[in-house]
Amino acid sequence: MISAAGTSSSSSPLHFIGYFMDHRHEDLGWLWSHTWLSVLPVVIGLAIALPLGWLARRHRFVYPPLISITGLLYTIPSIALFVMIPPILGLSSLDPIQVPIALTVYSVALLVRVVADGLASVPEETLQAASAIGYKDLGRFFKVELPIAVPVITAGVRVALVANVSIVAVAGTIGMSNLGQLFTTGFQLSTPTPYYPPIVLGIVLCVLLALVLDGLVLLLNRILVPWRRVAR
């Protein structure tokens, strides 16, 4: 038995809905910032990764060093990257921008490889056929290579988004305002007896956010690639 208070309805794990109704203004604000913190870095990351991936595909010698460097960046734990970014960029030591920058770094690191591998998955015959019917470099890239690589890239974007939702919550532990704050709040309210609602609410909202974002990417993929069912 946890404690007498644990059985009261207000600290019950199931009370998270009531907790949300009581604090919805604050919670929705956190949900909103959590959402854009998860999405924006992936969008920027994709915009950077596409030309880099194209370069790695076009000039084979670029691929190994590019993959090594991005792999190295991906090795650095998120919390370490968060606190290391401000001094590197000369920002003040707790700047809200450090989180999206760190996440963009991760997104680029992950997506460069995905884009390069996705482009590499385009069959050689297809490329030759495209050139044979008169597509030039950039036209071939946007009209032929990229659409064929979309399913692979989509899979990478899904991984990046779901990972970001979890990483953004980590930023909550160093004071950034997002759904991670619910965990901080819950943790602080849990002395001396456990108080579950904000913690459970945070987990539920994070999972829901991850599921919704994932579903949206799937939907987008289906619109972009009508000829093929999504690769899981």
């Binding site: 946890i2 979890s166 619910l182 456990p194 913690i199």
Partner: peptide, 19 residues
């Protein structure tokens, strides 16, 4: 399981187990 926010699960389990 990967969709779960790690911090949240960590805090939840700590609150449950630590006492």
């Amino acid at each position: 399981v990967r969709a779960l926010p790690t911090v949240g699960v960590l805090v939840l389990l700590t609150v449950i187990i630590a006492p």
